[in-house]
Structure formats: C-alpha cells, structure tokens
Simulated assay, not measured.
Amino acid sequence: MSVQKEVKRITTHQLQTMKQRGEKISMLTAYDFSMAQIFDSAGIDVLLVGDSASNVMAGHETTLPITLDQMIYHAQSVVRGIKRSFVVVDMPFGSYQGNSSEALRSAIRIMKESGGHGIKLEGGSEIKDSVIRILSAGIPVMGHLGLTPQSIYKFGTYNVRAKEEAEANKLVEDALLLQELGCFAIVLEKIPSSLAKRVAKTLSIPIIGIGAGPHVDGQVLVAHDMLGINKEFKPRFLRTYADLHTIMTDAVTNYIADVKNRDFPNEKEAY
C-alpha cells in the first residue's frame, strides 16, 4: 500500500527561514480555483490574490475600482484550490486608508470569509495606524512599497519610483517601520535594483521584488503577464514563460472550424 506524502503548508515562519538560509521565494498572482490549483501543484510558495484582478479579470484601467466583496470572492476561489501555498490577499483601495477601524473590519472580513492566510497593504508611515490595528488582531500583514498602483493618480505615472535620494531614503525608513511594526514581508515594486538590494540586506524579513532586480529574497509576477495571456503589458522586468494567448487563440479557432465543418462532434464523441 502506497503511503501518500503529507503536503507541508507554507507559513510565515517558513518564509522567514527561507530568507535566512538564502532560498529564494517564488510568488505569483492567482484569482480563481483552476489556476490556483495548477500553481499550487507546481510548487509555488506564495499566491497573491492581487487587486490586479481589477485589470486582468475585470478589464479596468486601474486597480482602484475593485471592491472588498470582489476581492473576497476571488480569494475564496483561490483558497479552495490550494494545499500548500501561502495565500496573501490584497486589501483594495478604500478599505484601509485613513481609518484604522475600517481597515481592521476589512481585514477581518477577508480572513473570516475567504480563508486566506494574510493580507497586503500599500504604503508606509501614512498607513501605520491601520497596520498596527490589523496586526493587533493576529492577522499577518505584508507591506508594499515603491510603485504603489492604488496611488497611481497621485504619481501620475507607472515609471520607476525612488530614483531620487529623498524618496529612496523615505522608502528605506518606511520598510524599517513596517518591519518594526511586525509585518512578515514586504513587496518592493519597480524601484532601482541597488535600492532593493540595500533594503533586503538591511531588513531581516523577506523582501519580494517585482521590477526590483535580483538582489531581493523572492520574486512576484502577475500570472496573466508571465503566461503571455495579456499581450498589452511588456515592461522591462517581465519575462514571459509561455504564449498562452496564441495557444488559446489557435485552440478556439480550430474548435470553431470543426463545429462549422461538422467535424465536431464525431461518432466517437456522441452517445
């Protein structure tokens, strides 16, 4: 009789251990059951239920329109598909900024209703009170600094952040603050590689990069970009590992042709 090997779940403690021993952390976005199941089976460490669902799933121009209810729906779907991965859920725009009580309510709803393992917030000192309140409830918090897409209208551009010394110094200060408050990890998005390296070396918690160079503790990409489903978005930091856009288009084209030509279904495919 074969003994089925027990799947060991990834935890915040394991992510910390991975940093300490120099093992890189792999992270991808996921928004639905089927993809989560595939990514989890492949061995991904962390799945981010990103507010990028607003773009790639709902077709919005920015991440701002997605609601808390919609994020919870996507997170529920992802959690049902995993056995091993650590699932982090983005708190959407408007669910935590400027009101720590609202932030705590939002975070509790995400954890209770989705079954996710932690939440992610964008920002540093300006969201300090929200981070404190959420952590006080025992909810793991991942930070997000650098390019913060929820602040796109403030920045006015998706260009590289923290190239100037003042913004770079604030980013380091914010990273240290988030660590001091008790965040278990931080995402750094689209900042100079040298700055990301400085943060990763200075902090003891895992630093995950997206467009932040190779000197951090792990990497995250949006799945639809990495898989080549989304053809519109081609930043320098993106490496595409498949061309699913072409594969899927060809499959659908062949299906249409077979239906039109009365080739599908054939006798073997009928009852």
Rank of each mutant, 00 (worst) to 15 (best):
A162E: 11
R133W: 00
Y255K: 08
V78L: 04
S95Q: 00
S52G: 10
V88C: 07
N169H: 09
S41N: 14
M91F: 07
A242R: 14
I229Y: 15
A251F: 09
A166P: 00
E167V: 12
I208M: 11
V160T: 15
H215K: 09
H60V: 07
Q16I: 06
P92R: 15
T240D: 00
I66H: 12
G146W: 12
G115P: 10
S136A: 14
L203Y: 13
R133V: 00
A223K: 02
L238C: 03
K8T: 12
S136T: 04
E180M: 03
V252T: 10
A185E: 00
L203H: 11
G146P: 08
I44M: 02
G98W: 09
P235N: 08
L238T: 04
P235R: 10
Y31H: 15
K128N: 06
A185C: 05
S77K: 09
E61Y: 01
A137I: 02
K231D: 05
K154W: 13
P265E: 14
I247N: 03
L188P: 12
L238V: 06
L188K: 12
Y271Q: 02
V141M: 05
Q179P: 04
N266D: 14
K120E: 05
S85V: 05
P206V: 07
M71P: 13
S2H: 05
G143E: 06
K197S: 11
Q70F: 06
A196V: 15
T17H: 14
L203W: 12
E164R: 14
H245K: 07
E269C: 00
A36M: 05
L203Q: 11
S114R: 06
K197R: 13
A185N: 00
I82D: 06
A168L: 10
N99K: 01
A166H: 11
K163M: 09
G94R: 13
T67Q: 14
K5T: 14
A270M: 08
L64R: 03
M57Q: 09
G138C: 10
H224P: 00
L171F: 01
K8M: 02
I110Y: 11
M18L: 10
L104R: 08
I72D: 12
F237C: 09
I186C: 00
L203K: 09
P92E: 11
E113H: 07
Q97R: 08
V78W: 08
S106I: 00
K190V: 03
S54E: 07
S77L: 04
A251N: 12
G43Q: 04
I108C: 06
G118C: 03
D32W: 04
